[in-house]
Design a protein around this nucleic acid. Structure first.
Length: 587
DNA sequence: GAGCCGCCTG
DNA sequence: CAGGCGGCTC
């Protein structure tokens, strides 16, 4: 919906043809323009509520083209092409006229006077134009000789009109953009013509808008050219086939009606073939171009509005939301630098290209969440992280904690996804690893927030992708031993510091997320700060701190084994590790 | 003796 | 973080 709103907003008025028939004779590229402009953009946006806009655009375009071809225009064209000899051209012309008046396909064998009278002026004029256009299209030098003189004159006039209209459109297209928009209904002044600063400001705004329009026009034309480039290839092949088929029919002396039927069948087959072979390629092109165009459009619009000094906090958020909805991949491919929290600038070519890259590779409905090159949420303590599956946590951690650049990491992950197509859908493919990886270490550190004394069974449960043996188990146990060592060292250090600082009340020793102790611990176990530490860990940490404080205050530290009593308390405070950690890690 | 823990060291 | 070591429990 919004996509089309933008497109309609930037549609140049001067490219709106008043007649779709006036530009049909020479260049089918211009045939497409009214299809895009008049039929598509004037249609209520509500009609595009179902399915993707791209699909609607594609289907609409093909339908427009097909309707054009299935109209008498096309039938007459093929008939004339088939019957290029003089004694047949008049017959084909008559038949084409009948077909034009009989859209149901049940064509009478001849044109009755009643039928002629029943035809409206509109249809008669249309018939004349049809036949005229056909001659122009097939380039038959003899066709003009076989009509009556009056009709020939009308046809000649129609041809001239059509060509003039076409040339006029061509001229308009060649006009510089500032001239085009000066001629449009938009207010436009030449630079310097204003007599006040206010006018200068308006000029600048107009100029920016013109530039936006210009850009959108180029994008639109580029889109059309790409479509037609693909379509014309198939059209040329089909025309050659039709000529060959026509020769065969002449030899077999088949009726023109059978020609029509066969031609229609061929056309159906051709259409099916086009739809099957081209639609995918075309859709990809259209998706790419449209996505790029819309992103670019949104960028320009909001940049322009930003330049007016308005408060865009809500608008920018909306724009970002729309962009997310548009590509369906924003969260999956956005890089942190591309999403500044205060002043959103949407000129992120890398970001967009990554979106498109993933879109083209895996389709619009692929699991972008499985490629969490996404940064941690802007609020790094966002509680939603705790609900994320381990794959996501691990990937996010890997990406953000790596010493390598973020984009390099994305490239790595993309490469991995390239090698394993299933990765983008489900990263947790099961392959037992012989050894522990940095990812496992990271996971173990996060598990430490829940359990300080995990049993071997717990470790085996929560590292299902690890092929356990004595060495691996010992290494994992050693890890947690090291984690505890650091943990207790910090507790003892902060407890002693509190005593040195003269803290006498244990109530003055709380552990919050802002406290220095927590920061030290979080830095060690959650260096990337992309994991939401459970509150329970803060409670346990506070209890531990109090235990050390009390023991030291009571001078129990004189006993070489004074810590054992504390360990005995702390080991009972373990929590269950969330189920999300049970799924295998991605490496 | 296996398994695990904590301390020490690098 | 890992290796070595001693201690403890079973």
């Amino acid at each position: 919906m919004k996509v089309f709103a933008f497109f309609t907003a930037f549609l140049p008025d001067q490219s709106m043809h008043s007649s779709s028939e006036g530009c049909i004779e020479d260049d089918k590229a211009d045939v497409m323009l009214p299809c895009f402009h008049r039929n598509m953009y004037d249609e209520p946006l509500a009609s595009y509520s179902n399915g993707s806009i791209i699909s609607q655009l594609l289907r609409k375009t093909i339908h427009s083209k097909r309707a054009l071809d299935e109209s008498p225009f096309y039938l007459s064209s093929s008939a004339v092409a088939d019957c290029s000899q003089e004694d047949q051209s008049s017959v084909s012309s008559k038949d084409s006229t009948v077909e034009a008046a009989s859209p149901s396909g049940h064509a009478p064998t001849g044109a009755s006077p009643e039928g002629e009278h029943a035809m409206s002026d509109h249809l008669q004029a249309k018939r004349a134009r049809v036949e005229n256009i056909i001659r122009v299209m097939v380039g038959s030098p003899n066709s003009r000789q076989h009509g009556d003189s009056e009709r020939s004159e009308n046809e000649a006039r129609d041809t001239r009109e059509a060509r003039e209209a076409y040339r006029e459109n061509k001229r308009k297209q060649r006009l510089p953009q500032h001239q085009e928009h000066s001629a449009s209904a938009q207010v436009s002044r030449k630079p310097g013509s204003s007599s006040s600063d206010n006018c200068n400001t308006k000029d600048e705004e107009c100029h920016k808008l013109k530039e936006q329009l210009h850009s959108m026009q180029r994008l639109l034309r580029h889109l059309q050219e790409k479509f037609l480039q693909v379509y014309h290839q198939e059209e040329a092949e089909y025309d050659r086939d039709e000529t060959e088929v026509g020769v065969e029919r002449d030899i077999l002396e088949e009726s023109t009606e059978s020609h029509y039927i066969s031609a229609e069948d061929d056309f159906e087959r051709k259409n099916n073939r086009v739809a099957a072979e081209e639609s995918q390629n075309l859709q990809e092109t259209l998706k790419q171009e449209l996505t790029r165009a819309v992103n670019d459009c949104v960028d320009r619009v909001f940049k322009n509005v930003s330049s007016k000094g308005l408060d865009l906090s809500l608008s920018s958020a909306f724009a970002r939301h729309q962009r997310c909805k548009l590509a369906q991949v924003q969260r999956g491919r956005a890089s942190k630098p591309a999403l500044p929290s205060t002043t959103p600038s949407y000129s992120t070519p890398l970001h967009d290209s990554h979106i498109l890259e993933h879109l083209l590779k895996y389709g619009p409905h692929s699991n972008f969440g499985g490629l969490p090159c996404l940064p941690p949420s802007m609020d790094r303590t966002s509680p939603d992280s705790v609900d994320l599956p381990w794959e996501t946590i691990a990937m996010r951690s890997k990406v953000t904690s790596s010493h390598l650049g973020h984009h390099i990491e994305c490239g790595e992950l993309q490469g991995m996804a390239d090698r394993n197509p299933y990765m983008s859908l489900n990263i947790s493919f099961h392959s037992l690893t012989e050894g522990l990886t940095p990812s496992h270490l990271k996971k173990a550190k996060l598990m430490f927030f829940y359990t300080r004394y995990p049993s071997s069974n717990v470790l085996k449960t929560f590292f299902p992708d690890v092929k356990f043996n004595r060495c691996i188990t010992s290494q994992l146990i050693k890890w947690f031993s090291n984690f505890r060592e650091f943990y207790y060292i910090q507790m003892e250090k902060f407890a002693r510091q509190a005593i040195v600082d003269g803290v006498t009340d244990i109530k003055d020793m709380s552990v919050s997320r802002d406290s220095e102790l927590f920061r030290a611990l979080n830095m060690h176990y959650n260096k990337a700060n992309d994991f939401h530490v459970p509150d329970r860990f803060l409670e346990v940490a506070e209890i531990t701190l109090h235990e050390f404080y009390n023991a030291i205050s009571a001078t129990k530290d004189s006993d070489p084994s004074w810590k054992k009593a504390i360990y005995k308390v702390i080991c009972k405070l373990d929590s269950d590790v969330p189920e999300e950690f049970k799924t295998s890690s991605y490496l």
